[in-house]
Design a protein around this nucleic acid. Sequence first.
DNA 1: AGGCATTTGTCCGTATGTATG
DNA 2: CCATACATACGGACAAATGCC
Lengths: 254, 254
Amino acid sequence: MASDIIRSDIGRRTGIALWRQIADAIRAGISSGLGDENGKLPPETELAEQFGVNRHTVRSAISALVSDGILRAEQGRGTFIIRPERLTYPISKRTRFSASLAEQGQKGEARIMSSEIMPASAEVAKALALETEAPVLQIRSVGIGGETPISRTTAWFDCHRFPQMADNLARFGSVTKAFAACGLDDYLRKSTMVEAYHATLDDIEILRLSPGSIVLVTLATNADLQGRPVQFSKTRFAADRVSLQIELDPFKQD
Amino acid sequence: MASDIIRSDIGRRTGIALWRQIADAIRAGISSGLGDENGKLPPETELAEQFGVNRHTVRSAISALVSDGILRAEQGRGTFIIRPERLTYPISKRTRFSASLAEQGQKGEARIMSSEIMPASAEVAKALALETEAPVLQIRSVGIGGETPISRTTAWFDCHRFPQMADNLARFGSVTKAFAACGLDDYLRKSTMVEAYHATLDDIEILRLSPGSIVLVTLATNADLQGRPVQFSKTRFAADRVSLQIELDPFKQD
DNA sequence: AGGCATTTGTCCGTATGTATG
DNA sequence: CCATACATACGGACAAATGCC
């Protein structure tokens, strides 16, 4: 059979509506080659049979995906996939947001949403090797690739070491350039943690997700060439829009 | 306030039942310090108020988590967390499954479920730098930490280069030792991709998840010291049981 | 054009699950 | 435990758009 691609079965009384489970299955199926060469899905009746549910239930799933901009339904013709692929976002020693998107022909942009000086929480203080409550600059930004939001980041910087950081960031709109203007020419990714969660309401609003979507969360520390931490950040990626590519480079590019 | 830890808001008409969203929020909150020093949760009435729902709804969430073995409810005393923390799973040049669990005082074990020789798919062939359809050994295994399943992996090896791999794996139960017996003393992680999906029915069964849970998926290639790929693998982690720690080590441990 | 099969869109009623008070 | 309101899921029937003969 053509599309045995969706194998994930459907359960009842799980607290997750059937239409929701089906929507998620279709979403996942898209990245593994669901749909024919034109991105056309099997007809509703066939999907219903595959999932063992009523056609109405499949329709609920599809209409949710349509309003998410994932599918497009045309009466008499069929239902088609709109946005097929994921962006690959590299994590390496020299991870820089805008540069990595530019490589994929996307206009990358990190839009700064807020900027605030505050006392460091225990977590932030530890990551930046500061005293708790030491003043830090907190920046919230949203990463945009092409048209759609990809990620949202909260980043912290030591106010003491980089007093002009807020101004520089506002002026240049780029962490790399702002650091340079503060006298730090280079920095490297020191550590990264990756976790996955269900999207919060904030995620849903800011990243334009549908409820119950997944976010990939990275906790990252950047450090100067002496190994002293200069930036701590938490980034929440829309999981169905990215693959995180981890570049350990034990083998330099040849 | 003591536990403002659960901040994730709750939405209606999302296809995900309120009790389910609350259960997920509590699950997520556990790893970020929800509960007092004894792992005791706030009382149901307080939780209900925090989430803005009826106490009945919180009770549904709790009873689901109790039957999942995450919480324990004691009449008159309170509700307690059973399995508190996430395992941190390092990804570095020298990622080895059993070794990393052992460091955390867990009995690590990779239980081999199946072993099969098959023609390489396009994806596997590309990753291992082989011709498509070339014979490869496919191993399915489940990673266990302590008592609970953490991950499930499908790995592929070049049959031509490592003809004894199947036997060696069965004998030693460890990829590192099996490679050594095949004459490969050392290997390094060449590349890793990280993505996140909703759990499939297979995930739910094998990793003992509840439906709608999240899995972290890594696609990894290991290579010998000359950079030639020797192993390609896909691992699906129970997202609420692990943090992936990415070790780029630009700064060697001091 | 007409006729027909295919496929999505809309309406009805009914049973069960979820959430509140 | 009870009563009430709403969301979810099902089944069936028919309308509307498309494409092909």
